[in-house]
């Protein structure tokens, strides 16, 4: 945990793979290829990937794809998934309409 990723590491070029069109984030419709490319574009943390591609930022808030994205990024970086810091957790944990989020009890 909290492993600092060595940014000077050479992860090589992006090499297309036959299953790059596999959909990973079901809500935002992001593919495996897009995630792999993002890593080669320099997005090495899960938080960066999330902001760059919106994986896990759709309606379900990463319920299904977090683990899948983590695996893909880890493999691309040549590290174990356990070494990657998960994306930040913050409120609201579940999708909440803005009008509800703004309406706090008195």
């Amino acid at each position: 945990m909290n492993t600092v990723i060595d940014r000077s590491k050479d992860i090589g070029e992006f090499i297309p793979q036959p299953d790059d069109d596999m959909l990973i984030c079901r809500c935002e419709e992001i593919t495996k290829g897009e995630i792999r490319k993002a890593v080669h574009d320099g997005m090495w943390t899960l938080t960066e990937i999330r902001r760059y591609l919106r994986t896990g930022m759709g309606l379900c808030q990463g319920q299904t794809c977090s683990r899948l994205v983590k695996g893909i990024v880890a493999r691309e970086l040549g590290v174990s998934p356990a070494e990657l810091e998960p994306a930040t957790s913050r409120s609201p944990m579940r999708p909440v309409e803005m009008k509800v989020f703004g309406k706090e009890e008195a």
Partner: peptide, 17 residues
Amino acid sequence: KEHKPRGIFCAIGRCTD
């Protein structure tokens, strides 16, 4: 984006499909 069909997936309100 892709205009693909979706239905029930998790059935407990998590996946929003």
